[in-house]
Amino acid sequence: MVQQVVFILIAIFTLGMALGTVISRKLFHAALFLVGTFAGVAILYVLLEAEFLAVSQVIVYIGAIATLIVFAIMLSRSMMDKESGAVNKQWWAAAGGSVLLFAALALLLSKVPFATTSAAVPDDTIAKIGSQFVGVYVIPFEVVSVLLLVAMIGAIMLARERHG
């Protein structure tokens, strides 16, 4: 019961933050609303007893990616450009598209038979994730490292200050 109440409150919070991200007039505020959205999703993961996913969500999305976004905004835009105007003439098309996408996703997810179990979440989930990284999923694990390497080289190529 308590869990459901908390879920509803958090869901409302997350959706509100997401809406704020879309309609906020200042780009910096939109980024902060995005941080709120990420935090809400992290709390939803906690409610699902997926601790590792929750902390990863906070560390990677809030700690790294949102910081990067906020930072890019700080680098490229003055605070004095007050109204950047998130709403333009095509807002109704975007809203319609979003509603359609939501309907399609809801339909799809309701059709998928998810494997469920009533058993409690095992205590050593993180150790299991870890041993599967180097066991069953070793190829994706190594591919991730290549992907990160490529991302890093790309970042260096793009962001390096060129001289001469």
């Binding site: 906070v58 809030i62 700690g63 790294a64 949102a66 910081t67």
Partner: peptide, 15 residues
Amino acid sequence: VGVLYLMAVGAIGSM
């Protein structure tokens, strides 16, 4: 996830 939790709250500090 104690250690990672500390890392996660630390991220909020720099924000």
